[in-house]
Design a protein around this nucleic acid. Sequence first.
DNA 1: AATAATGGTTACAAATTGGTAACTATATAA
DNA 2: TTATATAGTTACCAATTTGTAACCATTATT
Lengths: 116, 116
Amino acid sequence: MVENIKKYGGCPVSATLKIIGGKWKPLILYFISVDVNRFGQLQKMMPGCSKRMMTTQLRELESDELVHREVFAEVPPKVIYTLTEKGESLRPVFRELSKWGIKNILEPRMSENQQR
Amino acid sequence: MVENIKKYGGCPVSATLKIIGGKWKPLILYFISVDVNRFGQLQKMMPGCSKRMMTTQLRELESDELVHREVFAEVPPKVIYTLTEKGESLRPVFRELSKWGIKNILEPRMSENQQR
DNA sequence: AATAATGGTTACAAATTGGTAACTATATAA
DNA sequence: TTATATAGTTACCAATTTGTAACCATTATT
């Protein structure tokens, strides 16, 4: 990997994490991928994420071209978020992250609690 | 994935990112994996990472059981860091993160610069 | 004329993270 | 006796991130 760092002038893993590592980004990307695609719907699914956070995370995902934002000229406003191709291409990455997390964090956490 | 979130009480992707997402953690894990395993050596490889940061990141990796810290009773002090099995098991995760980062961030960044 | 619905924006405060530089310990070598 | 090497720790300050709550625009409905 050192060759990659030299070749490209940076660590590819850190570069990816910088883009997808926002506090709510994985969850937002996931929900959009299953067609929870409106601002208000996303908020209902993630009550811990404030309106302000939701907007900034979505704007960053948009400027990194992982999601597309489509505004309809209606009142009350209607906005729909969809994954771009670049966003879709994260699937295998998320699959690995998810597999590892279930096995090494969530499952152990569960069996801990079952002990008592 | 919503089933996983409900089943395990949390998002497995976010859980993993919380552990490996520290500013210097991917790089530290990588260098340890190729036997750059002493504190001072790691510092030389990562001049942008302050001593203080290096210690806190290493301590967190240790408490998350991704690295093992072995202290030798010598003067001057000698400490060697190695990957645990849990740390090793991140390889496929990092492979995907790296592949995606090269293709979608580093390569585009390079060809941009070549244009002029 | 007031209210609801949607998707925000803005100002301010609080919390978290990170940088800098000085300090520590101790055996060995000069 | 003083300097060197290694692996830190600590205090203090600056920067970044995040939360809270109030505000906005517009059309349709009551």
